[in-house]
Computed example of a mutant assay.
Amino acid sequence: MIELNLIDRYQARRTRQFLQQEETFRHWLPKWRTRRRRRVLVTALGVVFTAMIVLAVAFLFNTTVAPLLWVPLTFIFLPLWTSVQVVSGRQGDAPRDALDEWEIQQRNSARSIALTVTQTLVFIVAIFLIFTSTVGWNVERLAYSGGGMAITAMLIGACTPAMIIAWTQPDPEPGDTD
């Protein structure tokens, strides 16, 4: 009998949980699983991220109203993100043992792109913070702005694999939606 180490046991448990959740969510949002509708969700998520970036910059100028506008964006982001995850089959964060070879290749490619996106966005945020603190521009509000930008950069990076998969997946076969 082969004894599994801690990582193997964790991966097996994660795969079991993923497959159970997949069974639960398989029939959710059936009309939104077409490529066209998935792209609408991904575009809407992109619009929310753009608004978050604009608000993060606005934090430099207004720390009373701009943060209050962040709350509705969060309430818009959460169902959009959940919907993208559901309609893409959560393949962006699926464990290896729950996917076939083609799905693993797609997931790994999307994750690689997401890492590059995250690194680039966080680098831009760091340069922004260094520049604005060096010139002494609204330093008292810089933490709010930088924090908002950093959170947005991390959210974009975390959502990128599912967004790429949702955007590029072909329409499901007619028998798959039954």
Rank of each mutant, 00 (worst) to 15 (best):
M1P: 00
I151P: 05
T132R: 13
G157V: 06
G146H: 03
L69V: 02
P161Q: 08
Q20T: 03
D8R: 12
E173R: 15
R14P: 00
P95A: 14
T132L: 15
Q105C: 04
Q91V: 08
M149N: 04
H27S: 09
W28L: 07
A66S: 15
F61R: 07
V139N: 05
G89D: 06
I76M: 14
L41M: 09
L115K: 12
V87K: 08
I7C: 00
R9Y: 02
Q85R: 15
A166L: 06
S83G: 15
I2W: 04
L4R: 06
L55W: 11
T63Q: 13
S145M: 09
V48P: 02
A51R: 08
Q91A: 10
T152Q: 10
L80S: 11
Q11D: 09
I53Q: 10
Q105K: 15
Y10C: 00
D176Q: 13
P79Q: 14
V139L: 12
T116Y: 11
R13L: 03
V71Q: 07
V84Q: 04
D176E: 14
A126S: 12
V125T: 07
I130E: 01
P172D: 06
L115D: 02
L68G: 12
S133F: 08
W81K: 14
V42R: 04
V48G: 02
R39D: 05
L142F: 09
Q11A: 10
V54W: 14
L60M: 13
L80D: 05
Q105F: 12
A143W: 15
R9G: 00
Y144A: 15
K31Q: 10
T82W: 12
R39K: 12
E101G: 04
T74H: 03
V117A: 13
G175W: 14
D100S: 06
A110W: 04
T50L: 15
R33V: 01
I151D: 02
L6K: 10
V139R: 11
I7P: 00
F77V: 07
I7M: 00
S133E: 06
F59E: 01
S88V: 06
V42W: 03
E23I: 00
L45K: 02
P170C: 08
A56D: 12
R16K: 09
D93M: 10
G148M: 05
W81N: 12
V139W: 07
A66Q: 10
T120G: 09
P79V: 06
D171Y: 10
R13C: 00
F59V: 03
F131Y: 14
